[in-house]
């Protein structure tokens, strides 16, 4: 009884953690399954078939490739644009600053179905055929807000006196930005980029509205496939993505830990 009381917080934590991680564990376990029919829902027996042939299901690797490409470009563009917007809002007083601030929030608050369908309406009205380009435009759009918000928070916590100290030490505005501001804001930019990539890679609803039959992203492929069956390859790619994310977060943590140790 006393043991339980002493470890209550740890027990609760573990319970929550397993609740959160259970789906991932199921995904990993079932990537080693050899299902009987088309559906990978029941455990049959251990097999490495899917792992040795991850592109074995037609179209899956094309979809993955498209998702990675779209994710990469959307991340790059939205991170660069978003960082610039964040600096503009965070550092300069200009007319329309507060309304810009508000408008940046709008895409985050808009339901995805609404945004997806209105984007499609817009593209069609403009005579742009849905496809990879429209998906990219849409992804950059919604990633942008998240990057702006993340980077802006970092800029707000920056001590303006550091830039003044740089200017005092003969750094012109460009040098001060490159040598002092940017390195200090970098963690915020990195966090924004990671967020943007995962949002882009993950998105189904908006993408689905603005895609064509020839531009199928990974989430669209999974959804489409699940109508007819769930290939084990999906679990393999899911596992790899999960491990990649884990690795990224872990190294990020390690770096910031080391930095905290040398800087705190």
């Amino acid at each position: 009884m006393r043991w339980i009381r002493a470890h209550l917080v740890a027990i609760a934590g573990l319970l929550v953690l397993s609740y959160m991680l259970l789906p991932n564990i199921v995904v990993i376990v079932f990537s080693f399954n050899k299902p009987k029919g088309n559906y990978n829902y029941e455990w049959q027996r251990f097999s490495l078939d899917a792992w040795t042939n991850p592109c074995g299901t037609p179209g899956i690797c094309d979809a993955l490739g498209l998702s990675l490409r779209v994710g990469f470009i959307a991340t790059l563009v939205s991170t660069i644009l978003g960082t610039m917007v964040a600096f503009a809002i965070g550092r300069y007083r200009f007319r329309g600053r507060s309304s810009t601030n508000l408008l940046i929030f709008l895409p985050m608050a808009t339901p995805e179905v609404v945004m997806g369908s209105s984007l499609l309406t817009l593209f069609i009205a403009m005579g742009i055929a849905p496809g990879t380009v429209t998906i990219l435009i849409a992804h950059i759009l919604f990633c942008l807000s998240f990057v702006v918000v993340t980077v802006k928070a970092r800029i707000a916590s920056l001590d303006p006196r550091l830039e003044q100290a740089a200017a005092d030490l003969f750094a012109n505005p460009f040098q001060a930005f490159i040598r002092v501001t940017l390195p200090l804001v970098a963690p915020g930019i990195a966090a924004g980029a990671l967020l943007a990539f995962s949002l882009s890679f993950d998105d189904y609803i908006i993408t689905n509205f603005n895609a064509s039959p020839s531009s199928v992203t990974f989430p669209m492929f999974v959804w489409g496939a699940s109508q007819r069956g769930t290939p084990v390859q999906i679990n393999v790619i899911g596992t790899v993505m999960f491990l990649a994310a884990l690795l990224l977060v872990a190294t990020g943590q390690l770096i910031s830990n080391r930095r905290a140790k040398t800087a705190a």
Partner: peptide, 20 residues
């Protein structure tokens, strides 16, 4: 003259050392 062009340096009230 701009701050970065002046041959003047400052020890700031809270030091303002570059943490990185």
């Amino acid at each position: 003259t701009k701050a970065y062009q002046r041959n003047v340096n400052t020890v700031f009230q809270n030091y303002a050392l570059f943490p990185h």
